[in-house]
Simulated scan of single mutants.
Amino acid sequence: MAKAAIVILAGNESHSDYGRLANALEAAKEFAENDDDELELIFDGAGTQWIPELEDEESDYHELYQAVRDDAAVCDFCSGAFGVEDAVADAGLVTLDEYDGHPSIRSLVDDDYEIITF
């Protein structure tokens, strides 16, 4: 059994950012497909900007995102800072604010999750 926390920090401004997103979602899907694994998928920092695009059915990454959406959560503070709080709320995604308005990475480490950032 593996425990992985995949954190998407990359924004959506460059071709390489799209590559990081695709790799993060593929990695998350691999964990999600294994019933013995535990997955936390967190959109944090500039990574919160992906939510409106990924929720759009026309997005090239929508289907891949849908495969892991149930495991996804979004940084509460950063969704506001990057102007996507309405899209996050409309999507019904869980927001995380355990540490100063942000997800608690320490608690994930304490729970023996491997932290993987993209």
Rank of each mutant, 00 (worst) to 15 (best):
D37P: 03
D97W: 06
G45C: 12
N23F: 10
W50Q: 08
G101P: 03
I51N: 05
S104F: 01
A91S: 08
D71Q: 09
A81P: 01
W50F: 03
D44E: 11
A81G: 06
D97H: 12
D97M: 03
V109N: 10
V109D: 14
R106I: 09
D36T: 07
P52Y: 00
Q66H: 06
V94I: 11
D35A: 14
A5E: 11
G11N: 04
T95R: 15
E57N: 05
D71W: 06
E55N: 08
K3S: 09
S104C: 04
T48W: 05
D112W: 01
L9R: 08
V84C: 08
V74E: 10
S104A: 08
G92W: 05
F31Q: 13
A27Q: 15
P52N: 02
D100L: 02
P103R: 07
S16I: 09
D76E: 14
N23C: 07
E58K: 13
Y65T: 07
I8D: 05
V88W: 10
D111N: 12
G47C: 02
E57T: 02
V94R: 15
A89V: 02
L21M: 05
R69T: 02
I105H: 13
A2R: 15
E114Y: 08
G83Q: 09
R69W: 04
G19W: 01
I105F: 13
E33F: 00
V109Y: 11
D60S: 14
I51K: 08
F82I: 00
R106K: 14
R69F: 04
P103L: 09
L108M: 15
A73C: 10
V88F: 06
F82Y: 15
G45S: 12
F77I: 05
E85I: 09
E114S: 12
A46W: 04
C78D: 12
E58N: 15
N34F: 07
G80I: 00
L21K: 06
E58F: 09
D36S: 11
V84L: 03
L54S: 03
Y61V: 01
E114C: 03
A72V: 04
G11C: 03
K3R: 15
D17Q: 04
Y18S: 13
L54F: 00
D37R: 00
F77R: 13
T117F: 02
D70I: 00
Y99F: 09
E40G: 00
E40Y: 02
D56T: 01
D70N: 10
L25H: 08
L96E: 06
A32Y: 02
V7N: 03
H15I: 12
L108I: 00
E63Q: 12
I42V: 12
A24Y: 04
E53A: 14
A46Y: 07
E63D: 13
I115N: 08
A89Y: 05
E33Q: 15
D56E: 07
S107R: 15
L93I: 01
E98D: 11
M1N: 14
I6H: 06
A89G: 02
L96S: 04
G83D: 12
I6V: 15
D110A: 14
S16F: 10
R69K: 14
A67D: 14
I116H: 06
V94P: 10
V109I: 15
F82N: 13
E85V: 09
L39R: 12
G45Q: 10
S16K: 14
E98Y: 02
L25W: 07
E33W: 01
T48C: 11
G19P: 02
D35S: 11
V7Q: 01
L96H: 03
D110L: 10
K29C: 07
